[in-house]
Amino acid sequence: MPPAEAPLLEARGVSKRFGGLAALADVSLAIGRGEIYGLIGPNGAGKTTFFNCLTGLYQATEGAFLLGGARLAGLKPHAIVARGIARTFQNIRLFANMTALENVMVGRHARTRSGVLGAILGTAATRAEERDTVERARALLAYVGIEPRAHDLAKHLPYGDQRRLEIARALATEPQLLALDEPAAGMNATETAALKALLERIRHDGVTLLLIEHDVALVMGLCDRVAVLDYGRRIAEGTPAQVRTDPQVITAYLGGALP
């Protein structure tokens, strides 16, 4: 069921071709404010390509994304972050030789203004902004539950904490939409349950979530709606219950019924 009010994010006929290969073909979907929206599909179905087009790392060959009704086409990735879309990466991309706190502080970049001159002169405005940045970063580390590791280098955090740090860093950009690329990859059942609780809390605090995920149980238990990609096409969309019984989806997953 599409949401009644105007969607937060809309993809209109997005296609992406690499040479002759169509990685995405005419994908349309709409995500409502406050939703948790899942994007699933077999490997190579185009999910990460969809993310890369959404966040501006790739330019879509055709079609466009609209955030709150405004077109994002042609915007550079950093400008898209400023509009309110943040993301995490499938293979964690933290700033390895910076501390956890510094990683989150970098996430404040798009929401802060201080320049070189302010830094050199140490103006009152710069210092206030810097204090605010540190405070918010600490609060975010506490929010995702890794505040005690604030001064550890990112590369020394355990795997699960690295995933959490990446989420905290993305949240620091104050997104309207948080796009998560396989956040539960490599986690055990306990860690996944904790992640689920965290994501629900983030939604509760007003951020819309879009996630790519292979952990079907997590997707089914967490998402309000799910879209299924196969060979770059959207073959199904609906509530987890609807998608689970969709014959096309079952075929796409090699005939195996979804759990």
């Binding site: 933290l94 970049h109 950009t173």
Partner: peptide, 14 residues
């Protein structure tokens, strides 16, 4: 430093 560490992640941070 963020750019030095990972340029794509830096872009993704705005």
């Amino acid at each position: 430093v963020a750019i030095r560490e990972d340029e794509i992640a830096a872009v993704a941070m705005g």
